[in-house]
């Protein structure tokens, strides 16, 4: 239902709206895309189109290695979280309604907590004197504190995995919640056992939620630079940090923009694939 006066001609408000959108969203994105094709000479930006940044990006082995390492890391985090998130969402879904609501709210609360605070808090868990080391020592698994838990890529993996978990559990839970009870009743009436119901109905109907969750996780993990910066140390150098560094000391904004364009293409590609997979033909 529409509230406005139907098919009215665009008024001043609409022109104003579009100019604001153009001024603050479209033009900045355009500038960003254009910058990827500029270059820097003597700390000044040269506004002549070139594909030099992209050539350097592809030929420089350290950029390539950082890119591949980050993509793999983001993929691993998504895969681990898909397993953990699915198990958690499934467990929540099987609880009685009161318990279920409580668990869902408890999962949503961390989403509104400050991102860097959550990352910082993970330092206290992973550090040499941290919670995890104390636990490992108390359980007798290790005798001395393990220093390998912080300031490397594993720390980044663990931290991102923890911080991004709600983004995985919630979409899967919503997908599970949408499965009509009648379908499950029909399956049991037709004599399907629990395993058959799960593999034949529950899993295929809830997996699209998992794909959406994996998409969120991947996009957020691959572009992040705060977690690697705070818990990654030197070893946990990721693509996001590489981009960010171009805007600090390195002062090569065009290269930073080019690196980001590649990241954006990967993100858009993942979003596109997830939309196709997460919206299967029988649901379209």
């Amino acid at each position: 239902m529409t509230v406005g006066a139907g098919r009215s001609r665009p008024g001043i408000g609409d022109y104003l709206l579009w100019s604001v959108i153009a001024l603050f969203i479209i033009v900045p994105l355009g500038c960003f895309l254009a910058y990827g094709f500029f270059s820097v000479v003597d700390n000044a930006i040269v506004y002549r189109p070139t594909v030099g940044n992209f050539a350097e990006l592809l030929s420089n082995p350290s950029y390539r290695a950082t890119f591949l390492r980050t993509i793999r890391m983001a993929f691993e985090v998504s895969a681990i979280n898909l397993v953990l998130g699915y198990a958690t969402a499934y467990f929540i879904w099987l609880r009685p309604p009161g318990m279920r609501n409580f668990l869902v709210i408890a999962l949503a609360i961390p989403l509104l907590m400050s991102y860097i605070i959550k990352i910082y808090a993970m330092r206290g868990v992973l550090g040499t004197n941290g919670l995890l080391n104390s636990a490992l020592m108390a359980l007798g698994i290790v005798d001395e504190p393990v220093s390998a838990l912080l300031f490397n890529l594993t720390a980044v993996r663990i931290t991102l995995s923890v911080v991004l978990l709600p983004f995985m559990v919630l979409p899967i839970y919503i997908a599970l919640e949408r499965i009509p009870a009648s379908v499950l009743h029909a399956a049991s009436d037709l004599g399907a056992n629990e395993l058959q119901t799960f593999t034949g109905i529950i899993l295929p109907l809830s997996l699209p939620g998992g794909i959406v969750g994996a998409m969120f996780t991947f996009v957020l993990a691959s572009g992040d630079f705060l977690a690697p910066e705070l818990v990654g140390g030197i070893e946990g150098f990721t693509y996001g940090r590489l981009i960010f560094s171009q805007f600090g000391l390195a002062f090569n904004w065009p290269l930073g923009a080019a690196l980001s364009i590649l990241l954006m293409c990967v993100a858009l590609g993942v979003i596109f694939v997830a939309r196709r997979l997460g919206n299967p033909r029988w649901q379209r």
Partner: peptide, 13 residues
Amino acid sequence: LPPIITGLSLLIY
């Protein structure tokens, strides 16, 4: 879009 891209678009702009 990843926040890094929104941030740096505006920075360049």
